[in-house]
Design a protein around this nucleic acid. Sequence first.
DNA 1: CTCCTTTACTTAACACCGTTAAGATTATTT
DNA 2: AAATAATCTTAACGGTGTTAAGTAAAGGAG
Lengths: 211, 211
Amino acid sequence: MGITERKEKQKQEIKKMILDASMKLFMEQGFENVSIRKIADLIEYSPTTVYLYFKDKNEILFNLHEMGFHKMAEYNTDLWTIKNPLVRLAKMGEYYIRFGLENPAYYELMFILKAPMEALEVLDATCEWKSGDQALGKLKETIQECMDKKLVEKGDVEAVAMSIWSMVHGMVALAIRDRFDKLVPRDQMVAMMQRGLTWLLNSLDISDKKT
Amino acid sequence: MGITERKEKQKQEIKKMILDASMKLFMEQGFENVSIRKIADLIEYSPTTVYLYFKDKNEILFNLHEMGFHKMAEYNTDLWTIKNPLVRLAKMGEYYIRFGLENPAYYELMFILKAPMEALEVLDATCEWKSGDQALGKLKETIQECMDKKLVEKGDVEAVAMSIWSMVHGMVALAIRDRFDKLVPRDQMVAMMQRGLTWLLNSLDISDKKT
DNA sequence: CTCCTTTACTTAACACCGTTAAGATTATTT
DNA sequence: AAATAATCTTAACGGTGTTAAGTAAAGGAG
């Protein structure tokens, strides 16, 4: 069935066109200024055509949200070459913050906007957020390793993971949503986040102080 | 000028009507489903009348955002009776999380939505975010006190404050935007946040371990 | 090559949105 | 009572997500 196969391929290509156009607009104009009509305009189709490839706007946003996780993975390629889990943990935080600040549009899709999660609830009955679960899993792994190697005090891995994630997420979310720069000068922002992160990890580190 | 005075009072009353109606809809239906038209319907005026009392929708949201800070202050009334700054810090975090989870609509206005900050940029040339600055100030005070009393290692108060705030904000923001409950069971959410918070503060506490 | 069916796409419309210009109504002052 | 000022509404503009119905092109069957 070479013919139907090529057709399927073409369909995927148009889907990609729609997603790329959406993301372009999203990055240029922000979430609230992207409409199906503008997307359709950009790829030179009628607005209704978009609905032949995606159920609704939420489904588009969900797909972009997935692309965001792939993009984030690119930031972390060299992460697992780091053998010291505490150093790796620090790098994870650093990369996370950098990814968020350098790709605010993706970050919004992944961790702030409700729309992608609404799509997930419709799409998947089990409502599993695979991408998020996987990303959090890697954080938990690293923390577990820190505890195993007695670099960090033993404790509730899950709660610690959620806490660390919450902190870096909080930083990025506050920055993206214009709260951070109202309180500290913009040029000091990144440095302060970094100081906060190293301060936290330093407080955790028990490798030096043998009680 | 008794007459103009009463008129001014009436004007303020209608303003309050608009804000109350907005907040009611906001809490019931969420941000994205509140429109000027619905607000006008609820107070039985025409949509355009709303514009005689507020410049635009953002200005309404900014006013609601301010009301949110007042509401949050109610949660903190007994906070300054706590003399031990470390205990106070813990309570601050606990109350912050509780406020956020119990008043998600207010929380969104205060710390997540862009609209109120956009209004601020138009309203105030200096762009000072007084409410936020004040709230953060109290956190910094408490942390400073902790350091002064050697309950917490001395360090960059600003960075530490931003970090702690980021963590609790991160927790609430993830919960409100449907990321938390996709990864941990909903009934364990609050408990886990609490564990994370006490874990953090425990790591900071150096009052016992005299190095 | 013609007829028919399927696929791909568009036009038109619905019900909403924030916002503004212009007109109508009401109240106050002269 | 007439003129002025304050208050509110109607109608409209250009936008939104989405759907029903119609058109044009492509593929297969005879």
